[in-house]
């Protein structure tokens, strides 16, 4: 890499980690290393918080939150889990009921096929709605997990 190319890359660089080839060049070129550290120092110092955060801002906003509409998921996770447990409970318990056994004896073993299909359909619809309504949430959680994994934040 030439010094000219290095400076070109330095000026074009996004706010990301320095490219390996730039670090390698700076390691043996004192002039470019000085340019790099000058720009980095300039940016670091420019980015120092220069606005003194008002001590009142956070309490002021927090005091206003109860007065504005609270953000809410359409259905809370707790209710989703309860609904899921209810459906699963029905699937397990309904075949054990005496009325079900009477129906089975009346209509024969083939009676269980449409009932199983109905249960399967209910579970599929439940899971489908759950996935569709939580896909953004899953995305958010995945990003949070990736941030933790990359060590950026706990």
């Amino acid at each position: 890499m030439t010094c000219r190319h290095f400076l070109e890359l330095l000026d074009r660089m996004d706010n990301i980690d320095i490219q390996e080839e730039m670090t390698a060049h700076a390691a043996f070129c004192p002039g470019c290393a000085a340019e790099l550290s000058a720009v980095m120092a300039g940016l670091r110092l420019y980015r120092l918080p220069d606005v003194c955060c008002s001590a009142n801002l956070v309490p002021k906003i927090m005091a206003m939150l109860p007065l504005v509409p609270a953000p809410k998921r359409l259905v809370s996770m707790r209710n989703w889990v309860l609904a899921g447990l209810l459906i699963m409970g029905s699937v397990v318990l309904v075949p054990l009921m005496s009325d079900f056994r009477v129906l089975k004896e009346t209509f024969g073993p083939a009676f269980t096929i449409p009932v199983s299909m109905a249960f399967g359909l209910i579970i599929t619809i439940y899971l489908g709605i759950f996935v569709i309504s939580h896909i953004d949430e899953f995305g958010r959680r995945l990003k949070a997990y990736e941030a933790v994994k990359s060590g950026k934040i706990a």
Partner: peptide, 18 residues
């Protein structure tokens, strides 16, 4: 204070205003 933004957003959506 050490949690990722997305986790905090989920908590707020769960009703944790703090």
């Amino acid at each position: 204070s050490a949690l990722a933004d997305e986790k905090l957003v989920s908590r707020v959506l769960d009703g944790d205003r703090e």
